[in-house]
Simulated scan of single mutants.
Amino acid sequence: MADRAPTVPHLFPAEVERLLDRADALCGRRHVKLTALRRQILGLLLEAGAPLGAYDLLQRLQAVQGNAAPPTVYRTLEFLMEFGLIHKIERLSAFVPCTHTLGRAPCHDHDSECVHASQFLICRVCSGVTELEDPAIVAAIKAATKNVSFRPQHLTVEIEGVCARCAAG
């Protein structure tokens, strides 16, 4: 008897699949599922290498499975943000994978001093985004918020400017 073909073709390069497997393991540790749809959308973001808006994601998803609808994409994006797998870049109204969460085990114990903090460098010329996580910036914000008895749990800073590649060109 011949082997059955998989119902979903292998769409992503090996590095993206490795990161998706890491995301799946993170979700498992949090007792949630990285469903096929969530995995597909996260994979599209990882593969893009650039920020994608919800409708860009919808178009890419529809190319793979034609019946995708906007509410499905938005619900999936909310899930991926809630569990720290992606970030929304407000300035661009677009989404990027969290390079830090997928690179190490994140802290999501909101009763501790853990702060999921990222800084995004956004190029005004090419719209490229680089994610940083500078502990000195986090320490400064923690110190400032402690002075007003506020305990941050999530921190996103967006910094606009010109990337090195665009500045050189």
Results as ranks from 00 to 15, higher is better:
12 F>A: 06
162 V>K: 11
168 A>W: 00
132 L>S: 10
2 A>R: 13
109 D>F: 11
98 C>M: 03
97 P>K: 04
102 L>D: 01
45 L>C: 08
85 L>P: 01
35 T>D: 07
100 H>Q: 04
56 D>I: 02
91 R>A: 14
120 F>H: 12
23 A>V: 01
132 L>R: 10
32 V>K: 08
80 L>Q: 06
2 A>E: 15
83 F>M: 06
167 A>V: 01
119 Q>D: 07
110 H>E: 14
22 R>F: 12
126 C>M: 08
126 C>A: 12
141 I>W: 06
94 A>C: 06
29 R>L: 11
164 A>E: 14
84 G>D: 14
72 T>P: 01
50 A>H: 12
88 K>Y: 09
110 H>W: 12
116 H>C: 13
156 T>I: 05
88 K>T: 10
46 L>H: 03
138 V>T: 15
98 C>D: 15
97 P>V: 03
146 K>C: 01
107 C>G: 12
157 V>P: 02
42 L>V: 03
49 G>Q: 10
121 L>C: 04
16 V>F: 01
21 D>L: 11
61 L>E: 15
110 H>D: 13
7 T>V: 10
167 A>C: 07
57 L>N: 09
19 L>D: 13
90 E>G: 05
16 V>N: 05
143 A>V: 07
52 L>H: 13
27 C>F: 05
35 T>C: 09
31 H>Y: 14
139 A>Y: 00
76 T>L: 02
23 A>F: 11
27 C>R: 00
71 P>A: 02
105 A>H: 12
131 E>G: 05
23 A>C: 09
121 L>P: 01
111 D>Q: 11
1 M>L: 09
1 M>E: 08
71 P>D: 03
162 V>A: 09
160 E>C: 06
65 Q>R: 12
135 P>M: 01
165 R>D: 14
111 D>V: 06
143 A>F: 06
141 I>G: 03
107 C>A: 13
120 F>S: 03
45 L>I: 06
120 F>W: 03
163 C>A: 06
73 V>D: 02
163 C>N: 07
146 K>P: 01
18 R>D: 13
37 L>A: 15
14 A>V: 10
117 A>F: 04
164 A>V: 07
96 V>N: 06
120 F>C: 05
33 K>H: 10
36 A>D: 15
